[in-house]
């Protein structure tokens, strides 16, 4: 449940709209290399949702952990994709 104060509700709705729009762009994009920036955009939006969802001090640690993990995963996919193409030729 969002925080019932007015301003965080608007912020979390903006984050949710950005996340769904980025996910749709990721799915509808054909090129694999052009998918990865939109995956990063979706990851940032989900990090915002996690940080704004609960008014608790450890929430920022969870959001930071998700941010680090998602960025690491996306960079690993990009690195392996580029290295596979270079090794193939």
């Amino acid at each position: 449940m969002p925080v019932a104060e007015g301003m965080p509700v608007i912020a979390i709705y903006v984050c949710a709209v950005i996340a769904v729009y980025a996910a749709l762009r990721v799915i509808l994009q054909r090129n694999t290399m052009r998918k990865l920036p939109f995956l990063n955009v979706m990851s940032f939006a989900v990090t915002g949702i996690i940080a704004l969802l609960l008014p608790h001090p450890i929430t920022i640690a969870a959001a930071a952990a998700y941010f680090v993990g998602s960025t690491l995963e996306s960079n690993a996919i990009a690195s392996t994709w580029a290295g596979g193409i270079k090794k193939d030729e």
């Binding site: 995956l39 979706m42 990851s43 989900v46």
Partner: peptide, 13 residues
Amino acid sequence: LISLSVMIGGIFP
């Protein structure tokens, strides 16, 4: 794998 990452991002909240 990219789509799987999208699904995981939907599950975490």
